[in-house]
Design a protein around this nucleic acid. Structure first.
Length: 200
DNA sequence: AGGTAGATGTTCT
DNA sequence: GAACATCTACCTA
């Protein structure tokens, strides 16, 4: 039977970022009612050469050193806005990059923002997610359990989400660390997971 | 299918 | 000045 409100999220944002990154797969993320199911994430941590927090606190990464469960939004390549979920206790400097979403809510709105109809490419990549959800720098530091954000847990009645793991994308340091997570078989990923070795 | 280049701005050395 | 947690368009097959 339908519920009037959602149960509390079974997510501990103080957990290590790779744990949170995996747990977020299948969770629905909405911004002003627009978004869908998270199908791809990446974990970053303080002692991680690929992380923005590797060198310690700076003005840009301040939100990553703040309380968990808030947003860290940064500008990528001067063009895109990318959204992270801050993890660990305040001061630690860990987070999860939201890399891809399966569009379910406010699809027309996202298509208009992206100037693109193809559902598969609507939110398939961190920059695309940012554009589709209307993320910009003003969201940096905002709590994810309060408007305009909504996080909806995985329905316990549904079969468990199958998660694949692989190396992170688009980084040059620690490129072999398997901290990319995605829903197995999803067609909304930014890139497929290569479970089978490429043919020679 | 896969490679390359260019856009565009902020951050940090 | 270099690097960058990216995306798109435009090549070549």
């Amino acid at each position: 039977m339908p519920r009037a409100s959602h149960p509390p999220l079974d997510l501990d944002f103080d957990a290590p970022s790779e744990v949170v990154a995996r747990a977020l797969i299948g969770v629905t993320l909405l911004v002003d009612g627009v978004g869908g199911r998270i199908v791809e994430t990446e974990a970053y941590d303080r002692d991680d050469p690929a992380s923005h927090t590797f060198g310690g606190p700076t003005p840009r990464n301040a939100a990553m050193f703040g309380p968990s469960g808030r947003a860290y939004v940064y500008r990528s390549y001067g063009i895109h806005w990318c959204l992270n979920v801050v993890c660990r206790e305040a001061g630690h400097g860990a987070g999860v990059l939201i890399r891809a979403i399966e569009p379910t809510m406010g699809i027309a709105r996202m298509q208009a923002r992206r100037g693109l109809d193809d559902l598969r490419l609507l939110c398939a990549g961190p920059g695309r997610v940012g554009q589709a959800l209307g993320i910009d720098g003003s969201f940096n530091g905002k709590a994810l359990d309060a408007p305009p954000f909504v996080l909806i847990p995985i329905d316990g009645e549904q079969p468990a989400v199958q998660v694949e793991v692989g190396p992170r994308i688009g980084i040059s340091k620690a490129a072999d660390v398997p901290w990319r997570f995605g829903e197995k078989g999803s067609r909304f990923l930014s890139k497929p997971f290569r479970t089978v070795p490429r043919a020679v």
